[in-house]
Amino acid sequence: MDPIIILQAGVASGTVLLFATIGEIFAERSGVLNLGVEGMMLIGAMTAFSITVSTGNGWLGLLLAMIAAGLLALLHGLVTIHFQADQVVSGLALTFLGTGLSLVFGEGLNKAGAISLLPKFTVPLLSAIPFLGPILFTDQSVLVYIGYAILPLVWFYINRTRPGLHLRAVGENPTAADAMGINVYRLRYFYVFVGGMLAGLAGGTISLAISPGWFSELTTSGQGWIAVGLVIFAQWDPWRAAFGSYAFGALRRVILDIQGPQVLFGFPNPFFYNPYWGFFMQMLPYAFTIVVLLLGSREALRKRLGAPAALGLPYIRGERGV
Protein backbone atom coordinates (compact mmCIF):
# COMPACT_ATOMS: atom_id res chain seq x y z
CA MET A 1 0.00 0.00 0.00
CA ASP A 2 2.72 2.46 -0.92
CA PRO A 3 0.81 5.51 -2.24
CA ILE A 4 3.58 6.31 -4.71
CA ILE A 5 3.35 2.87 -6.29
CA ILE A 6 -0.45 3.02 -6.39
CA LEU A 7 -0.45 6.42 -8.08
CA GLN A 8 2.29 5.33 -10.47
CA ALA A 9 0.31 2.27 -11.51
CA GLY A 10 -2.87 4.33 -11.49
CA VAL A 11 -1.45 6.74 -14.04
CA ALA A 12 -0.45 3.78 -16.19
CA SER A 13 -3.87 2.14 -16.16
CA GLY A 14 -5.57 5.55 -16.42
CA THR A 15 -3.81 6.06 -19.74
CA VAL A 16 -6.19 3.49 -21.26
CA LEU A 17 -9.20 5.54 -20.18
CA LEU A 18 -7.46 8.73 -21.27
CA PHE A 19 -7.08 7.61 -24.88
CA ALA A 20 -10.63 6.26 -25.06
CA THR A 21 -12.12 9.37 -23.44
CA ILE A 22 -10.20 11.79 -25.68
CA GLY A 23 -11.33 9.81 -28.71
CA GLU A 24 -14.95 10.00 -27.63
CA ILE A 25 -14.58 13.74 -26.96
CA PHE A 26 -13.52 14.23 -30.58
CA ALA A 27 -16.49 12.26 -31.92
CA GLU A 28 -19.00 13.95 -29.61
CA ARG A 29 -17.62 17.43 -30.20
CA SER A 30 -18.40 16.88 -33.89
CA GLY A 31 -21.96 15.93 -32.95
CA VAL A 32 -21.75 12.14 -33.21
CA LEU A 33 -22.40 10.10 -30.08
CA ASN A 34 -20.55 6.81 -30.42
CA LEU A 35 -21.47 4.34 -27.68
CA GLY A 36 -19.40 1.61 -29.32
CA VAL A 37 -16.20 2.47 -27.43
CA GLU A 38 -16.20 -0.86 -25.59
CA GLY A 39 -16.45 -2.79 -28.87
CA MET A 40 -13.79 -0.69 -30.58
CA MET A 41 -11.45 -1.10 -27.62
CA LEU A 42 -11.90 -4.87 -27.75
CA ILE A 43 -11.13 -4.90 -31.47
CA GLY A 44 -8.07 -2.76 -30.77
CA ALA A 45 -6.86 -4.96 -27.92
CA MET A 46 -7.36 -8.14 -29.94
CA THR A 47 -5.75 -6.77 -33.13
CA ALA A 48 -2.76 -5.30 -31.30
CA PHE A 49 -2.10 -8.50 -29.41
CA SER A 50 -2.68 -10.80 -32.37
CA ILE A 51 -0.43 -8.81 -34.73
CA THR A 52 2.28 -8.56 -32.09
CA VAL A 53 2.17 -12.28 -31.48
CA SER A 54 2.53 -13.10 -35.17
CA THR A 55 5.02 -10.39 -36.20
CA GLY A 56 6.81 -9.58 -32.96
CA ASN A 57 6.41 -5.87 -33.69
CA GLY A 58 4.33 -4.09 -31.06
CA TRP A 59 4.27 -0.79 -32.97
CA LEU A 60 2.84 -2.46 -36.04
CA GLY A 61 0.27 -4.11 -33.77
CA LEU A 62 -0.68 -0.76 -32.31
CA LEU A 63 -0.98 0.87 -35.73
CA LEU A 64 -3.20 -1.87 -37.11
CA ALA A 65 -5.29 -1.83 -33.91
CA MET A 66 -5.96 1.86 -34.47
CA ILE A 67 -6.85 1.33 -38.12
CA ALA A 68 -9.13 -1.64 -37.34
CA ALA A 69 -11.02 0.25 -34.65
CA GLY A 70 -11.16 3.34 -36.85
CA LEU A 71 -12.72 1.36 -39.69
CA LEU A 72 -15.27 -0.09 -37.29
CA ALA A 73 -16.10 3.45 -36.18
CA LEU A 74 -16.59 4.48 -39.82
CA LEU A 75 -19.36 1.89 -40.01
CA HIS A 76 -21.09 3.79 -37.21
CA GLY A 77 -20.35 6.97 -39.12
CA LEU A 78 -21.94 5.67 -42.31
CA VAL A 79 -25.06 4.43 -40.54
CA THR A 80 -25.59 7.56 -38.43
CA ILE A 81 -24.29 10.32 -40.71
CA HIS A 82 -25.60 9.24 -44.07
CA PHE A 83 -28.36 6.81 -43.15
CA GLN A 84 -29.50 8.98 -40.21
CA ALA A 85 -29.98 5.96 -37.96
CA ASP A 86 -30.40 6.50 -34.23
CA GLN A 87 -26.93 7.08 -32.79
CA VAL A 88 -27.70 5.28 -29.54
CA VAL A 89 -28.84 2.06 -31.19
CA SER A 90 -26.07 2.16 -33.77
CA GLY A 91 -23.50 2.57 -30.99
CA LEU A 92 -24.95 -0.41 -29.17
CA ALA A 93 -24.82 -2.42 -32.39
CA LEU A 94 -21.19 -1.41 -32.75
CA THR A 95 -20.49 -2.75 -29.27
CA PHE A 96 -22.11 -6.10 -30.10
CA LEU A 97 -20.32 -6.24 -33.44
CA GLY A 98 -16.92 -5.29 -32.02
CA THR A 99 -17.26 -7.76 -29.16
CA GLY A 100 -18.37 -10.56 -31.50
CA LEU A 101 -15.64 -9.87 -34.06
CA SER A 102 -12.92 -9.72 -31.43
CA LEU A 103 -14.12 -12.96 -29.81
CA VAL A 104 -14.25 -14.75 -33.17
CA PHE A 105 -10.90 -13.50 -34.46
CA GLY A 106 -9.31 -13.70 -31.02
CA GLU A 107 -10.21 -17.37 -30.56
CA GLY A 108 -7.21 -19.20 -29.11
CA LEU A 109 -5.20 -16.01 -28.59
CA ASN A 110 -5.41 -16.42 -24.82
CA LYS A 111 -3.02 -19.34 -25.17
CA ALA A 112 -0.59 -17.37 -27.33
CA GLY A 113 1.94 -16.94 -24.53
CA ALA A 114 4.23 -14.04 -23.75
CA ILE A 115 5.12 -11.25 -26.14
CA SER A 116 7.74 -8.56 -26.00
CA LEU A 117 5.94 -5.54 -24.61
CA LEU A 118 6.29 -1.95 -25.65
CA PRO A 119 9.31 -0.39 -23.91
CA LYS A 120 9.23 1.20 -20.47
CA PHE A 121 11.69 3.86 -19.45
CA THR A 122 12.48 6.55 -16.89
CA VAL A 123 12.82 10.16 -18.01
CA PRO A 124 16.26 11.34 -16.77
CA LEU A 125 15.71 14.82 -15.34
CA LEU A 126 11.98 14.87 -14.72
CA SER A 127 12.05 11.73 -12.61
CA ALA A 128 14.10 13.66 -10.02
CA ILE A 129 11.13 15.98 -9.24
CA PRO A 130 10.05 15.17 -5.70
CA PHE A 131 6.75 13.23 -5.42
CA LEU A 132 5.65 13.79 -9.05
CA GLY A 133 8.86 12.38 -10.55
CA PRO A 134 8.46 8.83 -9.22
CA ILE A 135 4.76 8.83 -10.05
CA LEU A 136 4.74 10.31 -13.54
CA PHE A 137 8.19 9.82 -15.00
CA THR A 138 9.67 6.66 -13.51
CA ASP A 139 9.52 3.29 -15.25
CA GLN A 140 6.39 4.08 -17.24
CA SER A 141 5.40 2.61 -20.59
CA VAL A 142 6.15 4.73 -23.62
CA LEU A 143 2.37 4.93 -24.15
CA VAL A 144 1.94 6.74 -20.84
CA TYR A 145 4.31 9.44 -22.06
CA ILE A 146 2.43 9.61 -25.35
CA GLY A 147 -0.65 10.26 -23.23
CA TYR A 148 1.03 13.22 -21.52
CA ALA A 149 2.15 14.54 -24.88
CA ILE A 150 -1.18 14.46 -26.71
CA LEU A 151 -3.13 16.02 -23.85
CA PRO A 152 -2.01 19.65 -24.30
CA LEU A 153 -1.97 19.15 -28.07
CA VAL A 154 -5.59 18.02 -28.07
CA TRP A 155 -6.65 20.93 -25.89
CA PHE A 156 -4.79 23.39 -28.11
CA TYR A 157 -6.20 21.82 -31.26
CA ILE A 158 -9.81 21.94 -30.10
CA ASN A 159 -9.75 25.38 -28.48
CA ARG A 160 -7.11 27.42 -30.29
CA THR A 161 -6.88 26.31 -33.92
CA ARG A 162 -9.03 26.85 -36.98
CA PRO A 163 -9.74 23.14 -37.60
CA GLY A 164 -10.67 22.89 -33.92
CA LEU A 165 -13.10 25.76 -34.36
CA HIS A 166 -14.64 23.95 -37.33
CA LEU A 167 -14.93 20.81 -35.21
CA ARG A 168 -16.84 22.68 -32.52
CA ALA A 169 -18.98 24.50 -35.06
CA VAL A 170 -20.06 21.24 -36.67
CA GLY A 171 -21.09 19.87 -33.28
CA GLU A 172 -22.82 23.00 -32.04
CA ASN A 173 -24.56 24.32 -35.12
CA PRO A 174 -24.07 22.28 -38.28
CA THR A 175 -26.45 24.42 -40.32
CA ALA A 176 -24.40 27.55 -39.65
CA ALA A 177 -21.18 25.64 -40.22
CA ASP A 178 -22.49 24.41 -43.55
CA ALA A 179 -23.45 27.95 -44.53
CA MET A 180 -19.88 28.99 -43.72
CA GLY A 181 -18.64 26.47 -46.27
CA ILE A 182 -17.54 23.77 -43.84
CA ASN A 183 -18.22 20.24 -45.08
CA VAL A 184 -20.25 18.90 -42.15
CA TYR A 185 -20.40 15.33 -43.43
CA ARG A 186 -16.70 15.05 -44.15
CA LEU A 187 -15.68 16.47 -40.78
CA ARG A 188 -18.03 14.19 -38.89
CA TYR A 189 -16.67 11.12 -40.68
CA PHE A 190 -13.15 12.29 -39.94
CA TYR A 191 -13.70 12.77 -36.20
CA VAL A 192 -15.65 9.55 -35.84
CA PHE A 193 -12.65 7.84 -37.44
CA VAL A 194 -10.25 9.66 -35.10
CA GLY A 195 -12.38 8.63 -32.12
CA GLY A 196 -12.28 5.02 -33.28
CA MET A 197 -8.51 5.14 -33.75
CA LEU A 198 -8.02 6.45 -30.21
CA ALA A 199 -10.35 3.75 -28.83
CA GLY A 200 -8.24 1.21 -30.72
CA LEU A 201 -5.12 2.75 -29.20
CA ALA A 202 -6.73 2.43 -25.77
CA GLY A 203 -7.41 -1.25 -26.43
CA GLY A 204 -3.87 -1.80 -27.68
CA THR A 205 -2.54 -0.03 -24.59
CA ILE A 206 -4.28 -2.66 -22.45
CA SER A 207 -3.14 -5.72 -24.36
CA LEU A 208 0.43 -4.58 -25.06
CA ALA A 209 1.37 -2.54 -22.00
CA ILE A 210 -0.95 -2.29 -19.00
CA SER A 211 -2.25 -5.81 -18.49
CA PRO A 212 -0.72 -7.70 -21.40
CA GLY A 213 -2.60 -10.51 -23.05
CA TRP A 214 -6.00 -11.34 -24.48
CA PHE A 215 -8.70 -12.34 -21.99
CA SER A 216 -11.74 -12.05 -24.29
CA GLU A 217 -14.31 -9.58 -22.91
CA LEU A 218 -12.51 -9.34 -19.59
CA THR A 219 -9.69 -7.54 -21.36
CA THR A 220 -11.65 -4.29 -21.20
CA SER A 221 -14.25 -5.26 -18.56
CA GLY A 222 -16.45 -2.25 -19.18
CA GLN A 223 -13.74 0.41 -19.41
CA GLY A 224 -15.18 1.56 -22.73
CA TRP A 225 -18.43 2.38 -20.99
CA ILE A 226 -16.62 4.09 -18.15
CA ALA A 227 -14.91 6.24 -20.79
CA VAL A 228 -18.29 7.26 -22.22
CA GLY A 229 -19.36 8.23 -18.71
CA LEU A 230 -16.14 10.16 -18.13
CA VAL A 231 -16.77 12.29 -21.23
CA ILE A 232 -19.95 13.58 -19.61
CA PHE A 233 -18.15 14.16 -16.31
CA ALA A 234 -15.37 15.93 -18.23
CA GLN A 235 -17.86 18.30 -19.89
CA TRP A 236 -16.11 17.47 -23.19
CA ASP A 237 -12.87 19.05 -21.92
CA PRO A 238 -9.58 17.12 -22.31
CA TRP A 239 -8.02 18.31 -19.05
CA ARG A 240 -10.98 17.22 -16.96
CA ALA A 241 -10.98 13.97 -18.94
CA ALA A 242 -7.35 13.42 -17.96
CA PHE A 243 -8.10 14.09 -14.30
CA GLY A 244 -11.00 11.64 -14.36
CA SER A 245 -9.05 8.98 -16.24
CA TYR A 246 -6.05 9.03 -13.92
CA ALA A 247 -8.29 9.10 -10.85
CA PHE A 248 -10.11 6.03 -12.12
CA GLY A 249 -6.82 4.33 -12.89
CA ALA A 250 -5.67 4.94 -9.33
CA LEU A 251 -8.99 3.67 -7.96
CA ARG A 252 -8.63 0.42 -9.91
CA ARG A 253 -5.17 0.05 -8.45
CA VAL A 254 -6.27 0.76 -4.87
CA ILE A 255 -8.91 -1.95 -5.19
CA LEU A 256 -6.25 -4.47 -6.16
CA ASP A 257 -3.67 -3.39 -3.62
CA ILE A 258 -5.88 -2.93 -0.59
CA GLN A 259 -6.40 -6.69 -0.42
CA GLY A 260 -2.66 -7.28 -0.05
CA PRO A 261 -1.30 -6.08 3.31
CA GLN A 262 -2.20 -7.68 6.62
CA VAL A 263 -2.02 -4.41 8.54
CA LEU A 264 -3.54 -1.17 7.31
CA PHE A 265 -2.74 2.12 9.12
CA GLY A 266 -1.92 0.13 12.26
CA PHE A 267 -5.18 -1.87 12.20
CA PRO A 268 -5.75 -5.39 10.94
CA ASN A 269 -6.80 -5.03 7.32
CA PRO A 270 -10.44 -6.10 6.87
CA PHE A 271 -9.86 -6.51 3.14
CA PHE A 272 -6.90 -8.85 3.55
CA TYR A 273 -7.51 -11.55 0.95
CA ASN A 274 -11.15 -11.51 1.90
CA PRO A 275 -12.86 -12.90 -1.17
CA TYR A 276 -16.28 -11.74 0.02
CA TRP A 277 -15.28 -8.09 0.36
CA GLY A 278 -13.66 -8.52 -3.01
CA PHE A 279 -17.04 -8.63 -4.74
CA PHE A 280 -17.93 -5.23 -3.32
CA MET A 281 -14.53 -3.92 -4.30
CA GLN A 282 -15.26 -5.07 -7.84
CA MET A 283 -18.40 -2.94 -7.86
CA LEU A 284 -16.55 0.23 -6.88
CA PRO A 285 -15.39 1.47 -10.31
CA TYR A 286 -18.90 1.10 -11.67
CA ALA A 287 -20.59 2.64 -8.64
CA PHE A 288 -18.03 5.40 -8.77
CA THR A 289 -18.86 6.06 -12.43
CA ILE A 290 -22.47 6.66 -11.43
CA VAL A 291 -21.38 9.04 -8.66
CA VAL A 292 -19.05 10.90 -11.02
CA LEU A 293 -21.82 11.18 -13.58
CA LEU A 294 -24.13 12.51 -10.89
CA LEU A 295 -21.62 15.18 -9.89
CA GLY A 296 -21.02 16.10 -13.52
CA SER A 297 -24.74 16.40 -14.22
CA ARG A 298 -25.37 18.55 -11.15
CA GLU A 299 -22.55 20.87 -12.08
CA ALA A 300 -23.81 21.08 -15.65
CA LEU A 301 -27.29 21.99 -14.40
CA ARG A 302 -25.91 24.64 -12.06
CA LYS A 303 -23.48 26.25 -14.50
CA ARG A 304 -25.82 25.72 -17.45
CA LEU A 305 -23.11 23.82 -19.23
CA GLY A 306 -24.15 21.30 -21.76
CA ALA A 307 -23.32 18.80 -24.39
CA PRO A 308 -22.53 19.99 -27.92
CA ALA A 309 -25.90 21.30 -29.07
CA ALA A 310 -26.17 19.01 -32.10
CA LEU A 311 -24.96 15.89 -30.25
CA GLY A 312 -26.95 12.85 -31.32
CA LEU A 313 -28.82 14.60 -34.11
CA PRO A 314 -28.29 13.74 -37.76
CA TYR A 315 -27.61 16.68 -40.04
CA ILE A 316 -29.79 16.75 -43.10
CA ARG A 317 -28.75 19.36 -45.59
CA GLY A 318 -31.59 21.64 -46.62
CA GLU A 319 -33.83 20.75 -43.70
CA ARG A 320 -34.32 22.82 -40.61
CA GLY A 321 -31.55 22.02 -38.18
CA VAL A 322 -31.04 22.91 -34.54
Binding site: H82, A93, L94, T99, L101, L103, E107
Partner: peptide, 26 residues
Amino acid sequence: IQPAGVPRLIQGIILFMLIASEVLLR
Protein backbone atom coordinates in the same frame (compact mmCIF):
# COMPACT_ATOMS: atom_id res chain seq x y z
CA ILE B 1 -20.53 -23.55 -32.57
CA GLN B 2 -16.84 -22.70 -32.56
CA PRO B 3 -15.46 -20.07 -32.30
CA ALA B 4 -17.52 -19.09 -29.28
CA GLY B 5 -18.18 -15.50 -30.33
CA VAL B 6 -20.27 -16.44 -33.39
CA PRO B 7 -23.78 -15.91 -31.94
CA ARG B 8 -22.73 -12.53 -30.53
CA LEU B 9 -21.23 -11.58 -33.87
CA ILE B 10 -24.37 -12.54 -35.77
CA GLN B 11 -26.51 -10.60 -33.31
CA GLY B 12 -24.30 -7.54 -33.81
CA ILE B 13 -24.46 -7.76 -37.60
CA ILE B 14 -28.24 -8.24 -37.53
CA LEU B 15 -28.76 -5.14 -35.37
CA PHE B 16 -26.44 -3.12 -37.57
CA MET B 17 -28.13 -4.19 -40.80
CA LEU B 18 -31.51 -3.55 -39.24
CA ILE B 19 -30.86 0.08 -38.35
CA ALA B 20 -28.94 0.69 -41.55
CA SER B 21 -31.85 -0.67 -43.59
CA GLU B 22 -34.30 1.74 -41.99
CA VAL B 23 -33.03 4.38 -44.37
CA LEU B 24 -34.98 2.50 -47.08
CA LEU B 25 -38.16 3.33 -45.19
CA ARG B 26 -37.36 7.02 -45.21
